[in-house]
């Protein structure tokens, strides 16, 4: 990866404003351009789907652990859901690479899914 200059590594694509990227596309071989396009696409998917899954799981956990009555915990976790979603989306685009974006969404999701699975089987 070190032979790429800063900003041309696939994961960094979204950090470069689109105008700058377009001009670079013209100068570089097509494969670099398509790699970046994939990196952007991957990040968009991580934001739309990955962050959504993360949100769904975190509010499920939240609904179970909040120290309020059952109805209130459920309501509060749903009220917070869009804030969680929005923050996750921003993080996906702000982080260094698409790989990091995906792992940041999926690792906590897996942990929470496992936790929910254990809770479900114990019940």
């Amino acid at each position: 990866m070190q032979q790429y200059e800063e900003g041309l590594e696939p994961g960094n694509a979204a950090r470069v404003p689109y105008k700058a990227r377009e001009t670079r596309n013209e100068a570089k071989p097509a494969s670099t351009g398509s790699r970046m396009r994939w990196a952007v696409f991957s990040r968009v998917m991580a934001a739309i789907i990955g962050a959504y899954v993360l949100t769904l799981l975190s509010i499920a956990v939240l609904a179970l652990v909040l120290p309020l009555s059952r109805a209130e915990s459920v309501l509060l976790s749903m009220l917070l859901s869009f804030l969680i979603y929005a923050c996750a989306v921003l993080w996906v685009f702000a982080t260094r690479s698409a790989w990091r974006a995906w792992s940041g969404m999926l690792l906590p999701s897996l942990l929470m899914a496992a936790g929910l699975g254990v809770w479900w089987s114990l019940k």
């Binding site: 769904l56 499920a60 609904a63 059952r70 749903m78 479900w120």
Partner: peptide, 9 residues
């Protein structure tokens, strides 16, 4: 955002 109702109800 249906998951809280799924797990709690």
């Amino acid at each position: 955002m249906p998951t809280p109702i799924v797990v709690a109800y």
